[in-house]
Design a protein around this nucleic acid. Structure first.
Lengths: 143, 143
DNA sequence: GTAAGAATTAGAATAATTCTAAATAGATGC
DNA sequence: GCATCTATTTAGAATTATTCTAATTCTTAC
């Protein structure tokens, strides 16, 4: 089990390794995103962060998120013009949007599929990123 | 070559076949989308439609688009929370977003890939639709 | 021809996000 | 250690795509 200050150090290092100044605001925003990986929106993150740092402003949350996304620590998830959601899973993965529950699930992608996907592009097209979203219903097999 | 009234009849039939009343507004919106398939936004569609029907309102364009999307005649394309774009290509296809030019290209998807994609889902997950977006740069081979 | 329902319209409202300008904090050079 | 310079945070205003509202106009059915 890790202490409060150990956790803090991990967050801080994570930020420094990206040449980002580890401000208290950035750390708490990152902490909240890592803690509950349910693809929260900026508003949800704001609410969770305020519980720990009541004086933080929404603009700062947006600023921090922009920074974290910019340095690749978190990823934006955009589905159908709904509010942007944030995801700390850095593996190449797809998203499954359960229409019943509204929940978003991460779906791991075999490397082989990604290669295959790039092959469907016509000559001259070079993909720097691929976004894959499923929509449907998920029956919890176990849970 | 088809006459004006023949074109009109085609549009009208297309709408009727979906149990949608073929109003002049819906026809002109559909016409504009079919005519120039460059994935226009609602604003761009509004501008193009106004050239032919200056009294139409933006709200009506949105209403018509909603109707056309609802009955499956056109498809929405959402990339990164940018304004929604509209696409009359009904084949199962992906989109390639050229970051240089901002243009969106349709990419045909072999049925085999789609099957393969459904297979990556864990048991219990049933996808009703799959959205696939590429981002990168496209060098025009011919053009 | 009239009543009922559907579609259109202009403009107001909404909501997520970005911008602005001022205040604060932190780092750097001396 | 202190002044300065830059980066960050903040509150609130601004922006913008889209949706809503309520009134009007069209269609359709009888």
């Amino acid at each position: 089990m890790s202490t409060q200050s150990e956790k803090h150090a991990v967050l801080s290092e994570r930020l420094k390794s990206c040449d980002v100044r580890p401000t208290p605001q950035r750390e708490v925003v990152l902490k909240v995103i890592l803690e509950k990986r349910d693809h929260p929106t900026a508003d949800e993150i704001f609410a969770r962060v305020k519980a720990q740092m009541p004086t933080i402003s929404l603009a700062t949350v947006y600023n921090c998120l922009e920074t974290l996304v910019g340095c690749g620590i978190v990823r934006q998830v955009n589905l159908e013009r709904a509010p942007t959601r944030y995801c700390p899973n850095l593996h190449e993965h797809a998203h499954f949007h359960d229409e019943q529950s509204g929940k978003i699930h991460d779906v791991d992608l075999p490397a082989e599929i990604m290669t295959r996907l790039r092959e469907v592009l016509p000559p001259g097209f070079q993909a720097s990123s691929i976004e894959l979203n499923f929509r449907g219903s998920a029956k919890p097999a176990t849970s």
